[in-house]
Design a protein around this nucleic acid. Structure first.
Length: 930
RNA sequence: GGGGGCUUAGCUCAGUGGGAGAGCACCUGCUUUGCAAGCAGGGGGUCAGGGGUUCGAAUCCCCUAGCCUCCA
């Protein structure tokens, strides 16, 4: 495609845009930070990494020190807001964001100059096609662009807060104006009224309109074209955020002492501009994927709009899904996994539209991996895993489809045709809400096979009602009183010094009783104690809190649990068991050491398990939670499906091998950033402060800082207590593996003393069984099989014998047929020991007597039971087995019922069974009259 | 985190308080060598688990677990 307006600038492919951008800033003293995972580390409030600055948030917030004040990165980013828009030619879920960052280093002047140099120099973009936007009030930025760079006023536009103000992210934090660079694709790119008209709205006019909007609330209604206009003439290429203020909870802004800069340029958009392509899907970042989809479908891109839309959906979602999976997201029913599932299913839906009925996503994923493996090697490393996950999800969707399809057909075929004009919104909604069957598919099938379409308005109304309901049920309540009670103690942070010792000298800084601060406590009272420093480990990181004794000059406290209700503060919960204690007492804390060691063994066990799981199942395994109790351990992680027993054994075997190797367990403190850089595993959900502790398990010939010759077997950020060498764990026995929800698994295991105990118990059980069965352990199974076969045979013989006996009894009953008004009646107590037998007897009698009323009774497990039968001809004459059963059972304190031909009844008075059966003849007589 | 649904034979599923079923698969026999072979017979069940209501629960109610699904 040749566009004569673009001069001689030569196109750049996506990979060179990425690398040359980074190099440009490296040459200007920026440190290149590798892309962080799409799963934000240490920020539970965020679903995905959604912009280049996200991983650097702690730097901008001043919580952590950056490795350098100038940073640059190409960050993988994912946004959920536009999922349903993907398919048009501008929206994306996954994209790469190029950026340069100044953390209290340079500010507007340099940021603007860098951006301009890069665009016009490195990228070779024509200066006259560059438009600039600044905030209404940011005269400083305006002047830099105008006076220093030399942009003429007619290409500098001012906008208000919605377009050109950033932040704060959350309720408080850094915030400031931004300035954007827009690229003018030419008037012919515009759509609607602005197409092919060179007329732009003059900046001054727009500024006046927006100023009135900001000051007087008069909505601006610009008539002409401008950079942020909806017509597609302009591409927003680069956003420069100037973090100038700190905004507090009340909305008050104070200038930051060292302002910062955060910029972001979408790689895909840059590629579209630099390759002279009309949109991102035509660039080399997407074309190979779209071509792969075309090969699978035999379709052609660019032939018709509907096909193109579907091709783009499949390509975009396959790309996003592959990267998400590579970063450890697995499809599930909530949160990240749910987003992943949605995009995979949306892709499959559009794939169907392209005629792909079978599985195809794995092949598209392969094309994605091929295209991006060079820039993101993790994609290639996880190739098999990505394909597997996508494949499983594809199968699962096929099941969902099958189920929904059956239900839909049921609805459509059971509703009388005259009632069916439209498929109701409610039906479509139930199919979607309960069975995950998309309304578009309902519509498709309805139209094709029944000539009916879905009432989409009704569907949307149901959907909106559901959203309302969910919102209403989402009110959160938090009790802050307890927290303030601790804060009011004024004890500050408790120093923890318990990694290498279990006893300590300290003094009492605070005592709480029933949530109230008190000066002292006496024997028998339940208290919470805060010490200046402690060796008691507070529950955290899945490990249980310590127990032990605190001894003061005048008394002792039995510590039953240790908790950290407020970050930094450690509280000992327990009971004064001797004398009394008071504020300021000098005390000795003594942790119950053996119990602590049990917990430590289990905690080290989880690290071994974690590393072993990653080794056996793959690096997507990610800790989702854990419990390190004294008796056992639990480890939750994400994985696609159940582990096979072979996998479980392999994991157990690997962990035990490392235990026998007796790896040294060492710990050191470092910054969070360094820990991650050194390769320590850090997991979502934990809140890590500036300084973190990392625990590694490795051969002792590598040093304590994680720089050994060999890679450590395990290396994790962790604040828990551990054994000193893996040998102390003893043995790790996996007890089982189970599901804890979609995509999440749980392993339970024991170590050390508990493992020994298990071996002792199990062999004791085996010995006991061996004695009872009179067979050595290795023959137990065969012996048990023989016993079971014997029992089976005996059971059959017994059943046969019973049947013969009952048959004989039934035959004898043939001689006791009575006549009630011309109807044959058999009513008798039997020796049957279950209802089934009585039914068999009844069947036999019915067969022999042809036309008869039968009422058989027996006392079964202490309760009187009656079975009644009426042959069809007599039912025709007004008799009803159910009524006979019910009415006769009343005489023995019960009730009954059933069908006209067969019924049963029970009661509470066994001695009245005879009376109840005697009443049957009367009931038959009454029934014949009625 | 919240809502809806499901859990019955190896598999797919029927079964609205009164005899646990069908199709497929499996086993045996016969028949037959050609497309889901046919015929006859047979084995196989903690109706997810626990509690409750009832003379009686797969069925109604409550709790728990697992799975599916939608929303956040």
């Amino acid at each position: 495609m040749i566009n004569p307006t673009h001069g001689s600038r030569k196109p750049m492919d996506g990979d060179s845009i990425r690398s040359s951008f980074i190099r440009f800033f490296e040459e200007r003293e920026h440190l290149h930070m590798p892309s962080a995972s799409l799963i934000p580390a240490g920020d539970p409030t965020l679903l995905f990494t959604s912009a280049g600055m996200v991983p650097f948030k702690p730097f901008f917030m001043g919580e952590q020190t950056p490795p350098r004040r100038r940073l640059t990165s190409c960050q993988k980013s994912f946004r959920t807001t536009d999922i349903d828009e993907v398919g048009d030619h501008k929206h994306l879920t996954f994209f790469e964001m190029l950026g340069n960052f100044s953390i209290g280093d340079y500010f507007k002047q340099d940021a603007v100059a860098f951006a301009w140099d890069l665009c016009t120099g490195l990228f070779g973009l024509e200066p006259e096609r560059m438009y600039v936007t600044v905030h209404l009030d940011d005269d400083q930025a305006y002047d830099i662009w105008h006076k220093e760079i030399g942009i003429p006023p007619e290409r500098i536009y001012r906008y208000g807060n919605s377009d050109n103000w950033w932040g704060p992210a959350g309720l408080e934090g850094p915030t400031g104006p931004c300035s954007e660079l827009h690229y003018d694709g030419g008037a012919e790119k515009g759509i609607g009224q602005h197409r092919d008209t060179d007329e732009m709205m003059p900046p001054d006019e727009l500024t006046a309109l927006l100023r009135r909007e900001a000051d007087e609330g008069i909505p601006a209604d610009p008539g002409g074209c401008h950079p942020n206009c909806d017509c597609e003439r302009f591409v927003e290429l680069w956003n420069l955020v100037f973090m100038q203020f700190y905004q507090d909870l009340d909305g008050v802004r104070t200038p930051l002492p060292a302002p910062s800069v955060d910029t972001g340029m979408g790689l895909e958009r840059a590629a579209a501009v630099l390759q002279n392509k009309p949109n991102v899907y035509e660039t080399d970042l997407f074309r190979p994927i779209i071509d792969a989809v075309c090969r699978l479908t035999g379709r052609e891109y660019g032939a018709d709009a509907e096909t193109d839309y579907a091709l783009r959906v499949v390509a975009e979602h396959a790309r996003a899904a592959s990267v998400l999976i590579s970063d450890g997201v697995v499809p599930s029913n909530s949160e990240r996994g749910y987003v992943l599932r949605r995009i995979i299913r949306r892709a499959i839906r559009y794939g169907r539209q392209l005629g792909l009925d079978g599985p195809f996503m794995t092949e598209v994923a392969s094309a994605v991996i091929d295209r991006f493996a060079a820039a993101y090697p993790a994609l290639d490393e996880n190739r098999d895993f990505i394909r597997r996950v996508v494949g499983i999800e594809e199968e699962r969707f096929a099941e969902t489809f099958e189920r929904g399809n059956n239900i839909l057909r049921n609805i459509l075929t059971t509703t009388p045709p005259e009632d069916l004009q439209l498929i109701s919104g409610n039906d479509a909604f139930v199919l979607y809400d309960t069975y995950g069957f998309p309304p578009e598919l309902v519509d498709e099938i309805g139209r094709r096979e029944y000539g009916l379409s879905v009432d989409m308005d009704g569907f949307n109304a149901e959907m909106e009602a559901k959203r309302e309901r969910d919102r209403a049920g989402h009110q959160v309540t938090g009790s802050m009183e307890i927290v303030t009670a601790y804060e009011n103690l004024g004890a500050g942070n408790t120093a923890f010094d318990g990694y290498y010792q279990t006893s300590i000298e300290s003094r009492i800084l605070g005592i709480l009783r029933d949530g109230e601060a008190v000066g002292q406590a006496t024997r028998g009272q339940q208290v919470e104690i805060v010490l200046a420093e402690t060796c008691f480990y507070a529950e955290g990181g899945g490990q249980v809190g310590d127990t032990g004794i605190i001894t003061g000059p005048n008394g002792r406290v039995q510590v039953e649990d240790t908790q950290s209700p407020v970050a930094g503060l450690i509280v000992h919960r327990g009971k004064v068991v001797e004398g009394d204690i008071a504020l300021g007492d000098a005390v000795t804390g003594q942790v119950e050491a053996e119990r602590r060691l049990d917990a430590s063994r289990n905690h080290s066990g989880t690290h071994l398990l974690h590393a072993a799981l990653r080794s056996i199942l793959g690096p997507h395994v990610r800790q989702a939670g854990s419990l390190c109790d004294t008796g056992r351990l639990r480890f939750d992680f994400n994985h696609v499906g159940a582990m096979t027993s072979d996998e479980q054994l392999a994991v157990q075997s690997l962990a035990n091998g490392k235990i026998r190797e007796n790896l040294a367990v060492t710990a050191h403190e470092t910054t969070y950033a360094d820990a991650v850089r050194e390769g320590a595993l850090a997991f979502f959900g934990d809140r890590y402060g500036d300084v973190v502790r990392v625990v590694r398990m490795a051969d002792s010939d590598s040093d304590a800082n994680g720089h050994g010759q060999a890679d450590p077997f395990s290396f994790e950020v962790c604040g828990g207590t551990h054994v000193h060498a893996t040998g102390q764990v003893g043995t790790l026995v996996v007890l089982g593996e189970s599901s804890i929800g979609g995509g999440m698994r749980r392993i339970e295991a024991i170590t050390g003393r508990a493992a020994e105990e298990l071996v002792v118990q199990q062999s004791a059980t085996l010995q006991a069984i061996s004695q009872k069965l009179q067979a050595p352990v290795h023959e137990l199974e065969a012996r048990l099989d023989a016993y079971m076969a014997d029992t089976d045979a005996l059971r059959r013989r017994l059943a046969d014998t019973e049947r013969v006996g009952l048959r004989a009894e039934a035959e004898s009953l043939l001689g006791r047929v009575r006549d009630v008004d011309g109807v044959k009646l058999v009513a008798s107590v039997t020796s049957a020991n279950n209802v089934e037998s009585m039914r068999e007897m009844g069947d036999y009698l019915k067969q022999k007597l042809d036309s008869v009323v039968i009422a058989l009774g027996a006392v079964i497990d202490g309760s009187p039971m009656i079975v009644t039968m009426v042959t069809p001809d007599l039912v025709g004459r007004g008799l009803h087995a159910g009524n006979i059963a019910r009415d006769s059972a009343k005489l023995m304190g019960g009730g009954g019922g059933g069908r006209p031909e067969t019924a049963q009844a029970g009661g509470r008075q066994p001695d009245r069974l005879g009376a109840a059966l005697d009443a049957v003849s009367g009931l038959v007589r009454d029934g014949l009259k009625g």
